[in-house]
Write a protein that binds this DNA or RNA. Structure first.
Lengths: 203, 203
DNA sequence: CGGCGACTAGAACGAACGCTCTATCCAGAG
DNA sequence: CTCTGGATAGAGCGTTCGTTCTAGTCGCCG
């Protein structure tokens, strides 16, 4: 019986509801600021269900929440980069959409990975590892886009570090300042930085 | 009696010990992850003293901790920028020293303001405000340096947004990856971005 | 039908949380 | 000396924390 599909439809329903709720709450309140009871309450699940799906407790749940945020942003990143051949223009569009999302949440929803991982440095190694993997994956997506736009591989990977770091920092700065300006400036400056590597466009 | 100096020497001693301890702990564990009793214990003060100096409770203490982090980084920023006439080179040196500090703490001590403010978005407006003021002050210091290096005022303020955002993001990325690479790349790329504004140097 | 495993349900535990409160200490003013 | 007020000291409040545990529900296989 390899078929786990039948009742997985239901179990995956509860499990996924818990992870999504955990991710959303930790995005706003941080890892330490979010309680398991609050998660189970808002997810419409009970404490028993939470510990059934996450026997590792809060840390395992936090790790799953970070991974969900990882997947969601990876997809957003890919969509933005695929929609526009020029990576510089794509980044400008991406920062604009990040700023829009942030404003629409009344500046509450920053990067889910960042919010969850900050403050767990020495105490929750699983979460640290998941966050490191998320950053690495995002960098790889950006680097692949740059390589596709005829960048040298070394330059692409190098630039990807700064692209991701600047996006993270600008998202945080915009959230704290309650203003789209940091993200907007980051988009423009990343485009300028990329353009400074010779090619003005995509060919 | 305007002279408050005599016993202020002692009272300021305890008060400052509390704030410094709070700042250090919140830098590592976040705002929610740090307890007032832990702060008082590690500061060698009692609960009574904490609430005597900070009748506003944890939020007032957190705000003071953010302001201390603000002052400390403002000073580090000024030192780095004053030591080198070319702002681009100064930023490379700054990222190197940030990376060194991070590595020396075994990747535990990130930006004290960021760690403290993340996760307090909707719940602690005083902390949010103090963090916004910190970012604005740092931006002003960077912008002033750029203006002194013959940048147009509009360009300088615009660039300052991205400089601060990138520094924040790279510090976070370096901490999570436990690697100096993100900060090192950020320094090089910020220097390149600044250099792209015409002047290759300081005159 | 009986039994079994996946899942739900929530009471209960000890510890820690932020905060309030009273008591005490002590230097300096009168 | 007394008196005063800033500072120290810590017991104790009610609440919430993460976690454990037992009981119960449900669908499916034999």
């Amino acid at each position: 019986m390899k078929t786990k599909a039948p009742h997985d439809l239901e179990t995956a329903g509860t499990r996924e509801r818990i992870v999504r709720t955990a991710s959303r709450l930790m995005q706003r309140q941080g890892y330490e600021g979010t309680g398991i009871k609050q998660i189970s309450r808002e997810a419409g699940a009970t404490l028993g269900s939470v510990y059934h799906f996450f026997p590792g407790g809060k840390q395992e749940l936090g790790t799953a929440a970070v991974r969900l945020g990882d997947e969601e942003f990876t997809e957003l990143l890919r969509e933005s980069l695929d929609a526009e051949p020029d990576p510089a223009k794509a980044l400008v569009a991406l920062t604009a959409s990040l700023a829009e999302g942030l404003r629409e949440s009344d500046w509450l929803d920053g990067c889910p990975v960042t919010s969850t991982v900050v403050g767990t440095a020495g105490s929750a190694p699983g979460i640290q590892r998941a966050a490191a993997e998320a950053f690495a994956r995002w960098r790889a997506v950006v680097a692949a886009k740059l390589v596709a736009a005829r960048f040298a591989e070394a330059d692409a990977e190098d630039l990807a570090h700064t692209v991701i770091a600047t996006l993270e920092g600008a998202e945080l700065a915009s959230q704290v300042a309650r203003s789209e300006t940091p993200l907007e400036a980051a988009g423009r400056h990343l485009a300028r930085l990329i353009a400074s590597y010779g090619g003005s466009g995509h060919s």
